[in-house]
Design a protein around this nucleic acid. Structure first.
Lengths: 203, 203
DNA sequence: CTATAAATTGTCCCATGGGTCAATTCTTGA
DNA sequence: TCAAGAATTGACCCATGGGACAATTTATAG
């Protein structure tokens, strides 16, 4: 039966088209017709494969999430040491094809709708849980549990922050700088965790 | 002439109503009628005071920005030492009345539109520039310029990241934890800047 | 080859929402 | 007190967009 084949292909095309439209138009300007046009199809076909607009964009987010997940997984497979696992997560989140202003725009738009869409919220939760878990797989061996979790939290927030920055200002942060800053924070916190506390420096 | 008075009052009410609607409805669901309803007025009055929808939300963002700015400024006035200036910025950005899920939702929605609205982009640029400048006013005395700028960048990204987190999951991060994590990063980086480099720890 | 089912299209419907405008109510200054 | 002008309203217009659907084309299986 080719049925499953064609429908799977078409659905994927439409998910990607939806994400592409999100990149250029944002959530407010993303219409079914634009998605159809982006996919080279008619509006009818979009609603043939997806119950409604909401479902379409939920799948668009799933698709984007899958890309991000696979990118990081690929790097994790190469990693041998705990530190390399951490670097894999960081580097993966800033891969050139992901860390693009337009991609950040799309994510921003999706995130902005999270509070009003249970499905989107779920996906977002998964993303953060996975990122934390991936980081912990390396951090566990480099710091006590409590510290490791703290570092994981900070790193995820930092990554989100840099993504937001790139979305808000295309030239505000470079991929290389973002990576180096995140890694520097990891290093600094690991060092701080390693040595005895001396109180805060400065006057 | 009361003209200026009434119109100023009304405009402020509408700006705030617009921001309130953004909190609950997001950018996609924010309509002029809802803003009017939130302000206890008719749709006509909204367009009487603002040329169009876009202008209204630009002013809503300005209003929110002003609140944020004044909150931080108030704390900066109390600060005596450089470290207190840094803490003022951090604490100010996490004040209870600002660091609320609904407020984060509204900001997220606004940020999501930044790429498609020059005025919003401008405001966003101002916000980041101010935050950086405020941080630098304290950091300048605690670390060499280069390091200080690096820390400012990381802190702004971290703050953004935590705001995003709160917007995405109302219970994902507490105000106290966010503050303590950001300050810990500042401390760790200042310590790292202070002492000689020893290479990255770990295997 | 043909019947069945899926793919695809274009049309239609209608609710929504931005924006205009004339009409009405309120203020205010003389 | 009363006119001028501002504040405010509600009705109206119309473009847009989500969604339903019947009609048509295309693929597939027997």
């Amino acid at each position: 039966m080719k049925l499953t084949r064609i429908s799977a292909i078409r659905r994927k095309e439409l998910r990607q088209a939806a994400f592409a439209v999100l990149q250029s138009e944002g959530v407010a300007g993303a219409t079914l017709e634009k998605v159809a046009a982006a996919a080279g199809a008619s509006k009818g076909i979009v609603l043939h494969y997806f119950r409604n607009k909401q479902e379409l964009f939920e799948h668009a987010m799933r698709e984007a999430n899958a890309v991000l997940r696979d990118t990081v997984i690929a790097r994790l497979k190469q990693a041998k040491t705990p530190m390399q696992r951490i670097d894999a997560v960081i580097d993966g989140n800033f891969e050139p094809h992901l860390f693009q202003p337009s991609v950040c725009h799309a994510w921003l738009s999706l995130c902005a709708e999270v509070p009003r869409d249970k499905k989107l919220e779920r996906i977002q939760t998964v993303i953060h849980a996975r990122m934390r878990s991936n980081l912990m797989s390396g951090l566990r061996d480099l710091a006590p549990l409590q510290q490791a979790e703290e570092i994981a939290l900070v790193v995820t927030a930092l990554i989100d922050g840099f993504w937001l920055r790139l979305g808000l200002g295309p030239d505000s942060i470079s991929r290389e700088q973002a990576i180096s800053e995140v890694k520097a924070v990891v290093t600094a916190k690991l060092m701080a965790a390693t040595q005895a506390s001396k109180g805060r420096p400065g006057p």
